[in-house]
Design a protein around this nucleic acid. Structure first.
Lengths: 160, 160
DNA sequence: TATTTCCCCATAGGATTTGTGGGGTTAAGA
DNA sequence: TCTTAACCCCACAAATCCTATGGGGAAATA
């Protein structure tokens, strides 16, 4: 199960994606770039009711994780560092919830050796690797861009 | 991530599966049936070091969940109620860890409505449904029988 | 009757998650 | 230069969940 952190992250990110898309549309007319029009926490909370303080820690994690940039001071806020299609959901989840794999011993980014588990006899590793791969097949393919697709609209097979 | 409970459960179950397979082999010679040769907690702990008391609560859950039968008194213990291929891994996980879905609002067995989430705008539900389905594709197909397959041996595409 | 084993309940201890508070720094604008 | 708005950082409080233990009871076997 996703943590609240990850859920809140996705909600905030969906706001940023929409803002990003709107800006890029304008930009075709040669106007602005995302870093110049960041979205403040107060804006995001207006759209998705939650604790601003808590959201703040989440957004800081996302910034440290290389997904967001930020601008301080009046008129400041957060913005996407890359095109929405270039950030897979897996990256967000890893930053906030850690491993995607169901066991540490089959994790790609957070591997830990299995204690008390005789690997020569353990039939679980392979099965859980299958589960991990099934997850990643979705989470590495789907991106922030898919977050902005509303329930009614069709979701492409591959955005990239 | 799987809880310790689920991990321990799978270890204990792998012992029961092997015991079951051995008995069925004998049974072809017309000897015994699983319920008559249960495996005691003390036996399982000998093979997989862990707290007996903790394992006890786990096995009770599995019994209540319809996966195991038990026999009291001297010579008692636990045994599989069905053929190993008839118990998908998903069933074990649901008993011990609850929902497999990444969000309550996309769970099949533990559904809960999303509060604070405007479903008309929420692009996350559909994506997480995809993740859920990817998981279930593995966890409903793989069964306890696959637990007994050692790392060296080939794992079939479908056991049933 | 003694022993072994499962059964049930309560709860302790620890870890993790969730959320809050306060003080600092940076930037914009009057 | 002053005020205000916003991010930044750290510490910690509160709640929840996970992990594990303890003790007494009931059933089965010999």
């Amino acid at each position: 199960m996703l943590s609240k952190k990850a859920q809140y992250a996705f909600r905030a990110l969906s706001t940023l994606v929409r803002s990003d898309l709107a800006l890029r549309k304008e930009q075709n007319g040669g106007v602005s770039t995302p870093g110049e029009h960041p979205v403040a926490i107060s804006e995001m909370v207006k759209e998705h009711p939650m604790s601003s303080k808590f959201l703040e820690t989440i957004l800081l994690d996302l910034r440290r994780g290389g997904i967001l940039g930020s601008k301080k001071g009046k008129g400041g806020g957060y913005y996407l560092l890359k095109h929405p299609e270039d950030t897979p959901l897996a990256q967000v989840i890893r930053i906030l919830d850690g491993p995607i794999a169901p066991l540490p011993c089959v994790s790609l980014h957070f591997y830990e050796r299995c204690v008390d588990c005789n690997e020569a006899v353990c039939g679980l590793n392979r099965l859980m690797s299958e589960v991990r791969d099934a997850n990643l097949a979705v989470l590495e393919r789907r991106t922030l861009a898919d977050l902005a697709v509303k329930p009614g609209q069709p979701l492409g097979q591959s955005q990239r």
